[in-house]
Simulated assay, not measured.
Amino acid sequence: MNKRLTISEIARMAGVSTATVSRYLNGHFDKMSDETRTKVQQIISDTNYHINLQAQSLKNQTTHLIGMVVADIENIFSSILFKGSDKVFEQHGYQILLMNSDNSIKREHNQLQRLLDLQVDGIILQPISTDPKNYEFIRIADTPIVIVDRKINQENWPEVSTDNYGYSKVLSELIIRMGYKRIITISEPLSDNEVRMDRYQAVQDAAKGTNVIVDRIEIDTETTDDFIYSQIMKKTDALKSKSVIYALKGTVLMRVRKLLSKFHILIPKDIGVTAFDDWDWAQLMQPQITTIQQNPKKMGEKSAEILINILSGNPLSQKTVLVESELKIRNSLID
């Protein structure tokens, strides 16, 4: 059909009101029978009808665009997070603009400002900083925002995360019960990252009152394998003490695994290995790695659902939503 159909014409063909078609197109099915929903869907499919988003945006003063800014687009966490959100937003007629801050506060600011300039209806943000001053311009713009995975101190925005401290403490207590004398965390710098701090603090708290030594190795993109190896050897008395490496992030686990293989260090014979992971790739390694398994897909879905509720004017039932993770015990630890 060359002529663009209107909602009124779709309603006439389906034998329903224009208000019913409008509710269907906006994903509001709560007061719609299955029969009516099926009928409207069939007419839309048969006529290949598409919403004129530009006209709808002008009428409603909305863009049907959602901005998502992630800290590291190369991290599998970001891809799965996006997939979870995208699924929900698609069902409600929204499109996501995915931005990468590349772990840079300056780049993050620029990406957020671009989204505000595009007049997105809302934003999902995996923040770089915990300092609310860095996000004052978003509050002033009054654009709805949901924080995911991390925290911003003293801000009243809704958050979707996991219990990083709680799960990390459970894993640490398991390590201690298995007789390990040293726990060495390996991560990117802990400063100004609430998630890493929570995970590391849990290790320290679990070790209080025991003879277990807790230490850490901080790395970045410039850190060499030789340096990490030398630190591991130093902190484990050349592998003589019963020690375990705890990678605080999935990508760090991948690097640790490659490094240990490179220097012919056996897991778990020479050293134990665990991680707070973002994806189930740890079970593909040999030996399989004991991890805390996050659910970024569910976190993405929850973030999208909360933002849609905000845009629909519905009150929030809770400010912070914790998505369950799972401790997966495999054979990278030894009694």
Results as ranks from 00 to 15, higher is better:
Asn48Pro: 06
Gly122Met: 04
Gln91Lys: 15
Val160Glu: 03
Leu174Pro: 02
Thr62Met: 12
Gln91Met: 13
Val170Asp: 03
Lys3Asp: 09
Phe137Ile: 08
Arg199Asn: 01
Thr290Tyr: 03
Asp205Cys: 09
Asn60Ser: 15
Thr274Ala: 06
Ser191Trp: 13
Leu98Ser: 07
Lys262Cys: 08
Arg12Asp: 15
Leu266Thr: 14
Ser303Met: 10
Tyr49Ser: 05
Glu326His: 10
Pro158Asp: 02
Leu259His: 07
Gln231Pro: 05
Gly93Leu: 09
Glu74Tyr: 09
Val21Arg: 00
Leu307Tyr: 03
Glu155Met: 15
Thr38Asp: 15
Phe77Ile: 01
Tyr135Gln: 05
Gly67Asp: 02
Thr36Ala: 11
Asn2Ala: 12
Ile329Ser: 09
Gln54Asn: 13
Ser325Ile: 00
Ile147Thr: 03
Ile44Val: 11
Asn103Phe: 07
Lys31Asp: 13
Leu112Val: 07
Leu311Tyr: 07
Asn156Pro: 06
Lys328Thr: 08
Asn75Ala: 04
Ile152Met: 04
Thr291Lys: 02
Ser45Glu: 15
Glu324Pro: 08
Met299Thr: 03
Ala238Lys: 15
Asn314Leu: 14
Ile232Phe: 05
Leu316Ile: 06
Lys242Tyr: 06
Asp117Tyr: 12
Gly27Phe: 06
Asp215Arg: 05
Gly15Ser: 11
Gln288Ile: 06
Arg257His: 14
Ile334Asn: 09
Ile43Val: 15
Glu159Pro: 00
Ile140Cys: 07
Asp225Ala: 13
Lys87Asp: 11
Ile310Trp: 04
Trp279Ser: 10
Ile175Lys: 01
Ser312His: 12
Tyr229Ala: 06
Asp220Glu: 11
Glu218Arg: 08
